[in-house]
Write a protein that binds this DNA or RNA. Structure first.
Lengths: 226, 226
DNA sequence: TCCCCTGTATGACCTATATCATAGTCTACC
DNA sequence: GGTAGACTATGATATAGGTCATACAGGGGA
């Protein structure tokens, strides 16, 4: 994994872009670089919230474990996105674990440093409000889906949600999809086999390509009201 | 419903308490009073996000409808809490509907006015970040529960969550509980009948009193690992 | 007062989906 | 190049809990 350019990363991130150069430099000094091998954790659920993270390279998933041993994937994050922020702002333990999916690099900022920086930068606070708002909106949709829709709809919507963020080619396993939709790997496999047979998707090991978004949307809507 | 004292309401709210008197006065001028009869809606899902609300009196529930017709209750709000903020910050349609459960009064602030006020008040922005963070934390817990826990656990946890916020006496119907836990009214009724029989709760029409929180917690944890 | 509507209660049935089992296939690492 | 482990695949079976039907009680409005 090559050396990264911190100021470049910061400038390109959603929440810090638009800051003055000297502010970026100040931030860069506060950052420390965390290299995570695939599978390694940035933090675990219930750890104390010492660090706020900005993903520089790679891919990170945020996972919550349940009493039955089944994992639920809250979100995947791409470079430029922040994670761990909820715990930092509330000063309460991380509500979930963050695990690198591939070799990754994150910029970590200490809780205190970040809060101090933030209190003097209302624009950044507003950006964060926007990010959190977006996540809450997504979460409320998913809550409704998990509570009221059947697996087929949930799976279809999960794929659509991912493709709206990442494009039609999705680098996820059936298990990932299952853990996001709140179902089992077997069910996700069966569902995707069906989609492949109907040419709605094409998929290989760890990869799903959406061919017919329209049909998938129809599936996500549920059976036509009779 | 009696006349309300706006400045008093604002001062006692989580996000505006601590502001200077003249700031409160300024805010009070921006507010308009919305009286909602029981059952009336402050806004509907997909409405355009014109107003930000602070509940002054009464009780409001935020509900998301699903394609199957089943409702899911995202949250109940008490006086002093804000709602509708996600839509306002993102300038996108409200993600859910807000309905008064009993006769209520809300203070509404126009989107533009509120954002202008906010951009000059970083402390308020930080408070809002905290509120949103808390809601996200709650949401991620509920997501995990809906995805991985069985109804019995979900119902128990729903009751516990409510009692930690409101105390042991809960003014909710079985249907409310079901719509929060993502199950059916019948299942919620059966569950609560069981709890009553075991003296863990005592309940009447539209009311549930938790008698034995400890036993309820055990139920929420799930069956002891064998 | 009476009536209707909402909330509570309970039983019978049914199905969506989890579980369990088994197997083949790819790939990353030794 | 071989091998272990992750990923995909598919069938058989079990069951949690949703669905449907019926009934009754309390409370608020006419």
């Amino acid at each position: 994994m090559p050396k990264i350019d911190r100021t470049q990363i910061l400038k390109q991130s959603l929440i810090f872009s638009g800051l003055q150069d000297e502010e970026i430099t100040e931030l860069a000094r506060l950052c420390s670089e965390k290299r995570l091998a695939a599978g390694e954790y940035a933090f675990w659920e219930d750890d104390s919230p010492d660090w706020f993270y900005l993903l520089a390279e790679g891919k990170v998933k945020v996972v919550k474990h349940s009493s039955t041993g089944k994992d639920f994937i809250i979100a995947f994050f791409e470079p430029g996105e922040i994670f761990g922020e909820v715990a930092v702002f509330e000063n309460r333990p991380y509500p979930a674990s963050a695990q690198a999916v591939v070799d990754s690099v994150a910029l970590g900022i200490r809780r205190g440093d970040f809060l101090k920086f933030l209190s003097r930068r209302p624009e950044v606070a507003l950006r964060i409000i926007n990010v959190l708002g977006g996540r809450l909106r997504t979460a409320s949709g998913r809550l409704r889906d998990l509570a009221g829709e059947r697996v087929e709809q949930r799976l279809a919507r999960t794929l659509l949600m991912l493709s709206s963020k990442l494009g039609p080619s999705l680098p996820f396993t059936r298990q990932d999809i299952a853990d996001m939709a709140g179902t089992t790997t077997e069910t996700a496999i069966r569902f995707l086999s069906g989609l492949n047979a109907r040419k709605i998707t094409r998929s290989a090991r760890g990869k799903i390509v959406i061919l017919d978004e329209l049909k998938l949307k129809l599936l996500g809507e549920g059976p036509p009201p009779l």
